[in-house]
Structure formats: C-alpha cells, structure tokens
C-alpha cells in the first residue's frame, strides 16, 4: 500500500468513526436537544472526511492527456458539491427540528431535576 492509499484509508475510517460517535450519541444522550448536538455536528464532519477521502481516491494517478482522468475529476467535483450541500443543509435541518421542538414545548433536561 502506498502512502496515498494509507492517507485515504485513514480519512475514510476517521469519517466512519465520527458517524459511529454520532449514532452512539443519539442513543446515549438524555434529552432531545442534546441528541441534536450529536446528530448535527458529527454528521457534518464525518460526511466531509469520508467524502474527501473518496474524492481524493477517485483522482489518483491523474493524467491530463486522458479524457478518462478529466471525467474522474468531474466526478470528484460532484462529490465536493455534495459536501458543500451538506454544510448548508445540515444546520438548516437541525434548526428546523429544534424550532419545532421548541414550539411543541419539549422540556430541556436540566441538572437540578436529577437531584430531587
């Protein structure tokens, strides 16, 4: 395995690790709002890392005389487009869900409730 492949594999597994953290987070947190923390942040970072890994791997041994290389570069740009979209969409979706929960009136978990 070359250095390049190892970097790609490391980025990919770091992304998968953060996805797993997000999934465990929405299982373990005590109330609704803190689950959103785990969901929103870890997902954005994990998608970025994993997608960048695949986009890098897709343009390996780039040769500017071949059409196939340029087509691979186009596919990588599309993957970067997904990352950009995720960065706009994830906070907006989180915001919408939080606002809905706020309107419905779900109570935030607080520390002093546990001490009673």
């Amino acid at each position: 395995m070359s250095i390049f492949s190892m970097i790609v594999a490391a980025l990919l597994f770091l992304g998968i690790f953060f996805f797993a953290i997000g999934a465990i987070g929405i299982l373990r947190f005590p109330d609704f709002y803190s689950r959103l923390h785990a969901a929103g942040k870890c997902d954005a970072l994990a998608s970025t890392l994993a997608l960048i890994a695949i986009a890098l791997f897709n343009v390996r041994d780039f040769d500017w005389t071949l059409f196939q290389s340029w087509d691979n570069l186009r596919v990588s740009l599309k993957i970067l487009l997904i990352i950009l979209f995720v960065y706009v969409a994830t906070p907006a979706a989180t915001h919408a869900i939080t606002k809905a929960a706020f309107i419905v009136g779900i109570e935030p978990w607080e520390k002093r409730k546990r001490n009673r």
Partner: peptide, 29 residues
C-alpha cells in the same frame, strides 16, 4: 443499525426525525 434503534424506539416523533436524518447522511456516503 445503531441509529435505527433510535428511530424505532424514540419517545417522540421528533426523535425519530433526527434518527432518520442521521441515517440519511450515512446513506449518502
């Protein structure tokens, strides 16, 4: 599969929406 547990067992509807959102992000990758 871990996120799916939250979707199936989540106490409120909004919890399920969060779980489905996480699953969607994972499915994209």
């Amino acid at each position: 599969a871990l996120a799916l547990i939250r979707v199936v067992g989540g106490p409120t509807v909004l919890d399920r929406i969060v779980g489905v959102n996480v699953i969607g992000a994972q499915t994209t990758v």
